[in-house]
């Protein structure tokens, strides 16, 4: 437990330890509320797992008798293997594009003063108020013109565009915390700016890259609306729309539905577990302070 409580990371923010007034942690003022929150959080997950791995007909609140049948059904009969690979492709490409673009944009914002910088920042922030649902119609027409309807690139592009602004701001806030002297020193030693960036700054940006990459991955993985609008063909379905159509068609086969949910949940939960300790840090560094 103690090992979990303090992962041996160099990049952690200082955690405040036992500040006065918050040392008491009895069972009633602490254990009980934590338990209640945990119950609320975990019971729905547990319920899904029970249904996914329990034989049809059993009513025990445990995955007993245990079975992989539901998983096999969704994997082969319902096409979730295809959906999974489509989702993986979309999420990984979005991750790659978003990280690269966020690095470029974030670097410009953190290291340069230039004309039009503050309007650009305003535009980046303003995009957060433009909802995806409202751009469905024109985006559909644009992708139709580009011949990208029923093409996963429509999803990759639109996911990247909508993830980019916040990720770029997050990245620039991280960059501002890295002393510029480090790059200057490298450049005096004869590095080009690009080389100085790669050799000196990039290694220090690891937590930021993990945070931004995970945001992009999870965002793309979970995106439903764009996929619903731009993808019509079964072979190109991603998991969210695959799951949605399964909810419609197989509404009586709860085992299969739950198993489909497990397929959709496992990759994000892995990514989440991987980036979880950067999450609080990433958010506080990237927070948009008014």
């Amino acid at each position: 437990m103690t090992a979990l409580a303090s992962p041996p990371a160099l990049n952690r923010r200082p955690t405040r330890e036992r500040a006065p007034g918050e040392t008491r942690s009895g069972i009633f003022n602490h254990g009980l509320p934590v338990g209640a929150f945990l119950l609320f959080t975990l019971v729905p997950f547990y319920w899904m797992i029970v249904f996914a791995f329990r034989q049809t007909g059993s009513t025990l609140p445990l995955p007993v008798p245990f079975t992989f049948d539901h998983l096999k059904t969704v994997w082969t009969d319902l096409g979730f293997s295809t959906y999974l690979w489509n989702s993986v492709a979309v999420a990984l490409c979005t991750l790659l594009f978003t990280v690269v673009l966020a690095l470029l944009t974030g670097y410009a914002l953190a290291r340069f003063e230039f004309r039009g910088k503050s309007p650009f920042m305003v535009v980046l922030l303003a995009t957060q108020f433009v909802p995806g649902a409202m751009l469905l119609i024109p985006l559909f027409l644009i992708f139709k013109q580009l011949g990208l309807i029923d093409n996963l690139f429509a999803l990759i592009i639109s996911d990247t565009v909508f993830q980019l602004p916040l990720c770029a701001i997050l990245m620039s806030n991280f960059l501002k915390n890295i002393p510029i002297e480090l790059e200057e020193a490298a450049m005096i030693d004869g590095c080009s700016r690009f080389r100085a960036f790669c050799a000196v700054v990039l290694p220090l940006l690891r937590p930021a890259i993990v945070a931004v990459g995970s945001f992009a991955f999870i965002g793309a993985w979970n995106n439903f609306l764009f996929a619903l609008m731009f993808i019509n063909h079964n072979d190109r379905f991603t998991l969210p729309i695959g799951l949605n159509s399964a909810i419609g068609e197989y509404s009586a086969d709860y085992g299969a539905l739950a198993a489909g949910g497990v397929v959709a949940a496992v990759p994000v939960v892995i990514v989440f577990a991987f980036m979880q300790r950067f999450l609080v840090q990433g958010v506080s560094a990237g927070a948009v302070k008014g």
């Binding site: 959080t41 997950f45 319920w47 979970n222 969210p240 729309i241 799951l243 959709a264 989440f272």
Partner: peptide
């Protein structure tokens, strides 16, 4: 554990 639902999509939340 508590932050886990943050990573879950709306559709998956629906299914659950």
């Amino acid at each position: 554990l508590m932050f886990a639902p943050w990573a879950i999509s709306g559709v998956l939340a629906t299914q659950i």
